[in-house]
Nucleic acid binder design. Structure first.
Lengths: 232, 232
DNA sequence: TTCAAAATATGACCACCGTCATGTTTTGAA
DNA sequence: TTCAAAACATGACGGTGGTCATATTTTGAA
């Protein structure tokens, strides 16, 4: 509708019906009426790699439903170092923590590759809550799992040494987002270290025949041994 | 009723009405009917310092409502180092993340000092959800804030150096739980470092006239300067 | 009151890894 | 195709802070 998202390119939305199973999210999946409702209020946007979807400190105006592509939620600390808090793919809901906390975004959402998503204004979301109370329970469940994931990664990044974290990052990124090729910097920001340390660790892993590097492409050769390197 | 909590001492519950404003939680505060309902199903327990309220990996059977005392949620990693994820005082709800995620506890809840709480079985909580849908929204709001807090502390512990984290810990523990005196180990587990580093940092802070130490008692002398040490 | 266990305190050591510098390769836009 | 910018790669250096050892003080239960 009238809402202009900075840096994005508004595109003609496809109907929720056509959105397909792989981008089906927990809100739309809650009740067949919901996609119909959203069709009337949503706008669709396309983002290119590295474009910002929303900025830290801004106020949430609604929810984003990722249709295709990957989005990273990035938090930059005072000294300038960036950390990837969460990664979200098709079917994920973006911006819901801030919306339900009634807080400004505390991190910046950035497109990792080409992203297509639709945006639904807050008012419409609240309507859904009124008509479908079970949606709140589903979101509660989802948010509770996100909190566990955050606390687990937190502890891992505190206690594991850099090579263990890089091994863990490789396995995670491979398992969940295998279609993507990641830069050393992106791996570092996920693993909580520096690009230099990632490179040195990758070189070491290659020497030990755990992985194979050809350019930016990393292939895991010995998954079980890499797991043991990660202490998993 | 018949539920026996290991290590706890079941006591005769006081009525929710008498529980008082300082232990009023977001569920009880949602609707006047709720405390009445809980009165019929809750059991009350008392724990002494260092007693475990629930163990990591166990399944949640209900919710704990803290009436008095402090509880820490502690996660121990493979190598044995312990981290305090969250601290909860009177009015806080304990064990709700796991309950709503439908997961086992991923951390252990330990009484920091003498704790009195009441336990309400899951079935009763679900009944409340049915009768009062707005409770789910309140919990959603609370959980969303918890996730921000976790992610913020995560980033701080990654990026700040040890003395900054100790300064931040002192200020936080003072602000939120001033009645408690903390051991060096407890401060370390909150700040994400070791008791030795906490001691060295405290000695340094005392030399700089930021704090005063007499035994286990720490008094903040120069709060604003301590804040700048914490980079806040 | 006694006394062992826990907490506090401090010094010495050194490994990990972040930082900086330098050079090479790759990428992607003009 | 060209070329500058970004990413990759590797070496050298040094500081932070974890670990261990040891001694002292405090705590709390018998």
């Amino acid at each position: 509708m009238g809402i202009k998202k900075k840096g994005s390119c508004e595109i003609t939305p496809i109907s929720c019906e056509m959105c397909g199973a792989n981008s089906q999210n927990i809100i739309c999946a809650s009740h067949p009426n919901i996609p119909e409702t959203l069709d009337r209020s949503k706008i669709s946007c396309r983002y290119k790699r590295d474009q910002v979807i929303f900025y830290s400190d801004n106020d949430p105006l609604g929810l984003f439903f990722i249709q295709s592509g990957l989005v990273k939620l990035e938090k930059t600390s005072e000294d300038g170092s960036a950390h990837t808090l969460r990664l979200m793919g098709p079917g994920a809901i973006l911006g819901y923590r801030s919306l339900f906390a009634n807080e400004p975004y505390h991190a910046t959402a950035i497109a990792v590759d080409q992203v297509e998503l639709c945006f639904v204004p807050k008012s419409e979301i609240l309507l859904i809550f009124q008509n479908h109370p079970e949606v709140a329970l589903r979101l509660l469940n989802h948010l509770a799992k996100d909190l566990r994931l955050a606390e687990e990664r937190w502890i891992h990044q505190m206690d594991k040494d850099a090579s263990e974290r890089v091994a863990e990052a490789l396995l995670f990124l491979q398992d969940h987002f295998h279609s993507q090729t990641w830069t050393r910097r992106e791996i570092a920001e996920w693993a909580g270290t520096t690009p230099e340390t990632v490179m040195r660790t990758l070189a070491q892993f290659e020497k030990e025949a755990l992985i194979d590097q050809s350019g930016r492409q990393i292939t895991i050769i010995n998954k079980s041994l890499l797991k043991s390197k990660a202490n998993l």
